[in-house]
Simulated scan of single mutants.
Amino acid sequence: MFPLFLIPVFIAAVAVCLYACIAEEIYRILALCICLLCTAIGLILAPWQIQGTVLVLALWLTRQFSLPKHNNYRV
């Protein structure tokens, strides 16, 4: 059985390539919207293992970027 979640992922990849190649702003925004929509649909259709992996990565990356590395302030 062909995994259906790969179809929107491939469409999103094509939209990213078009976004990088197109010079006009309206078409770039349209390609970006298509990319975001297809990524969301692909994530919804993905198996729970992939959804869980994306959730863990998102939580880990936001924690890595939101916390300061060290504290220079002394009391």
Rank of each mutant, 00 (worst) to 15 (best):
V56Y: 05
P3W: 00
A40H: 08
C35M: 15
C17W: 10
L18N: 13
I7E: 12
Y27W: 12
N71T: 02
F65H: 10
N72A: 03
I29C: 04
L61G: 04
N71K: 05
T62A: 10
A46I: 11
P68W: 04
I50W: 11
M1I: 03
G52R: 09
W60F: 15
V9T: 10
A20T: 04
A12L: 10
V56F: 04
H70F: 15
F65G: 11
A20C: 05
I34C: 07
L18R: 10
Y19A: 05
C21H: 08
I29G: 01
T39E: 03
E24G: 06
L61E: 09
R28E: 00
L18Q: 11
L4F: 11
R63L: 14
C21L: 15
I11Y: 05
I29K: 08
A20W: 09
A15T: 04
K69C: 08
C17D: 07
C38Q: 06
V14I: 14
T62G: 04
I44G: 03
Y27L: 10
A12W: 09
L61M: 14
V9R: 15
R74G: 02
L4T: 12
N71I: 05
C17G: 07
G52I: 00
R74Q: 07
R63Y: 13
P3H: 07
I26Y: 07
K69N: 11
F10A: 13
F65S: 12
L57H: 04
A12M: 12
N72D: 13
P8G: 08
F5Q: 14
T53F: 12
I22F: 11
R28F: 00
K69G: 12
V75F: 11
L37E: 09
I7S: 05
G42V: 10
R28N: 01
L59E: 08
L32A: 13
C35P: 00
V75T: 07
C38I: 01
I41K: 06
Y73W: 13
L37Y: 14
A58K: 02
A15W: 00
P8R: 15
V14R: 12
G42R: 03
V9M: 15
G52V: 00
I34T: 06
G42I: 09
W60G: 03
T39V: 15
P47Q: 00
L67E: 13
K69H: 12
V56M: 05
L61C: 09
N72C: 05
L37G: 02
C21P: 02
F65M: 11
L67S: 14
L18T: 05
I44W: 14
F65I: 11
Q64R: 15
R74S: 12
I11Q: 13
T53C: 09
A40D: 04
L6H: 05
L45T: 04
I34Y: 00
L37C: 13
V9Q: 11
L61D: 03
I11L: 14
R28G: 00
A46Y: 13
L61F: 13
A12F: 09
L30A: 14
I34E: 06
I11M: 13
I50R: 01
P8M: 07
Y27K: 04
F2N: 12
L55A: 15
Y27P: 02
M1W: 06
A23Y: 07
A12K: 10
W48G: 03
P68G: 06
N71D: 14
Q51D: 02
I7R: 13
C38H: 03
G52D: 08
V54S: 14
